[in-house]
Amino acid sequence: MTKALSLIVLFFVSNVYFCNAQEIMLNLTPQPEFINSSIYEIAEVHDTRPQSEKIGLVYREGNKMVNARFPNSLAHELQNYFSNSIQSRNPQLQKIIVKIEKYDLVENLNSNQIVEGELKIKFGFYAKGSFDPVHLLDFEGGMSYKRSKNRVDLIQNVIQQASENALKYFDQWINSQAMTNRSLANKVRLEVNQPILKSSSDTVFYNSKRGLGWQDFTAKPHAINKYNALIFTSLSMEGKPYVEDATIVLPLIIKVYMLPDQSWVKNKDDYSLNHEQRHFDVTKVVGDRLQYKLKKLDLNPENYEGLVNSAYLDAYREMSLLQKLYDSQTNHGRDASMQAKWNRYLDDALQGDWKNIETIISEKM
C-alpha cells in the first residue's frame, strides 16, 4: 500500500535557523506526545538511498547554491525524531522498521527571483521479526513551497511538516489495521477438532458408532493379489487462518477416512473384517495423537505455519509406519495371537492410552 501526499506551502514567518557560507544545517524537532501509541514503536531506521549522505542543494543570497544537511545521518535524525515523538516504551509492542527510500530536496529560481522548492520523500514501513522484515506499507509524500532567497530558514518548516505527515499517516494506518492485519498479529490460537462427518458412497469418515461393513469395500478385487482384502485409509488436515483481535486464529479439522472405491475384498468373513477395521483404527489413533500434539505446540505468528505443517507430516509418516508394522507383525491377520494383541493395543489407544503404541514406534525409529 502506498500513500502519496502533495502539499503547496507559502511561508511568511521566521524561524531560528543555523547556516554558514558552505552549507545549511537542518534539524528535526521531536514532538513529545505527538503520537500516543500502545501498540508499536519505531525500532530501527535504515537509509537505503544510493547516496544516503545527500539531501539537496538550496539557494542563498547571490544565487549561490549550498548543501543542505543534518548534523548527523538522516537515519539517525529520523530515529531520534520518531522515538521521541511516539510515547511507547512497552517491550511487547510491535517493533517497526522504517526504510528511507527517497528524501530529495530540490530548488529552482523562477523569473521573479523567487525560489520554488519541493521535498519528495518515500518511506517503507516494515514489521520487525526474527526473520526478514515484513512489508506493511509505503508512504510517499511531497511538499512544494515558495520563498525569497533570504528566507532559507523556511526550509525547516517543510522538513518538519513532511516528517510529521509520514508519522501521522502510519499511526492512523496501523491503528486501523492492528486487529485484523495478519502481519501485525502478536498471537496464534489453534482450534483443533475431529468432528463426526457424514459418510457417503465415495468417502467413509471414521465414526466410533459405525463400524466398517463389507458394503464399504466396493472396488474390484485384484485377482493376482495374494491377500484377501485391502483397505485404503488416510487422514487429512484442513483449515484457513483469519485474524481476530490481533490474534491469528487457525481452525483445523482433522479428517480420518477410508475410500470404498479403492478398497476391496475377496472372501467375506468377520475375522478379515476386523483386521481391516483395525487398519482404520490405526489411522484414527494417529489422528488423535496429531490433535494432541497440535494443542501442545508453542506457536507465534512467525513459526506457526511451519510447526503445524511439520506436525501433520510427522503424523502422516507415523501412520505409514504403524500400518506397515501392524501388517508385518500380524502377518496381514494370519497370526491370530498377534492380531489379538494388536486388537488390545488399539482398543487402549482409542481410549487415549498410547503406551503400547508408543513403545512399538520407538522400537522402530
Results as ranks from 00 to 15, higher is better:
Gly129Ala: 02
Gln215Asn: 13
Leu184His: 04
Ala178Ser: 10
Leu167Lys: 10
Phe217Lys: 09
Lys146Asp: 13
Tyr206Trp: 14
Ser320Gly: 06
Ala185Arg: 10
Asn150Arg: 05
Val115His: 05
Glu61His: 04
Val286Met: 06
Ser130Cys: 01
Ala229Thr: 07
Glu276Met: 05
Gly213Leu: 01
Gln329His: 09
Thr2Gly: 06
Gln31Thr: 12
Asp281Met: 03
Leu299Trp: 12
Asp245Glu: 15
Asp281Tyr: 10
Val192Arg: 08
Lys122Arg: 14
Lys226Gly: 03
Asp138Pro: 09
His76Cys: 03
Leu184Val: 08
Ser176Gln: 13
Gln194Tyr: 02
Glu116Ile: 11
Leu137Met: 14
Ala4His: 11
Cys19Gly: 11
Pro260Phe: 10
Pro251Val: 07
Gln215Ser: 15
Val192Glu: 08
Gln277Arg: 10
Glu61Ile: 12
Trp214Tyr: 15
Arg60His: 06
Tyr126Pro: 02
Asp216Ser: 13
Ser328Asn: 13
Lys293Asp: 13
Ile35Pro: 12
Asn207Glu: 06
Thr233Gln: 06
Leu252Cys: 08
Glu358Ala: 07
Met365Asn: 12
Asn343Trp: 02
Met25Gly: 01
Gly142Arg: 08
Arg317Gly: 04
Val98Pro: 08
Leu136Arg: 06
Pro30Lys: 02
Glu118Val: 04
Phe170Trp: 08
Asp132Val: 10
Leu5Pro: 00
Asn356Ile: 01
Phe18Trp: 06
Asp347His: 08
Asp269Asn: 15
Ser199Thr: 08
Tyr292Asp: 12
Lys209Asp: 15
Pro221His: 09
Glu276Tyr: 11
Thr203Ala: 04
Lys295Asn: 15
Ala349Ile: 02
Gln277Lys: 13
Arg210Thr: 14
Ala4Thr: 06
Val158Ile: 15
Gln79Thr: 05
Asn84Leu: 12
Leu297Trp: 09
Tyr312Cys: 04
Gln22Pro: 00
Lys187Asp: 09
Phe82Ile: 05
Thr247Leu: 10
Lys187Val: 01
Trp354Leu: 04
Ile39Ser: 11
Lys99Asp: 14
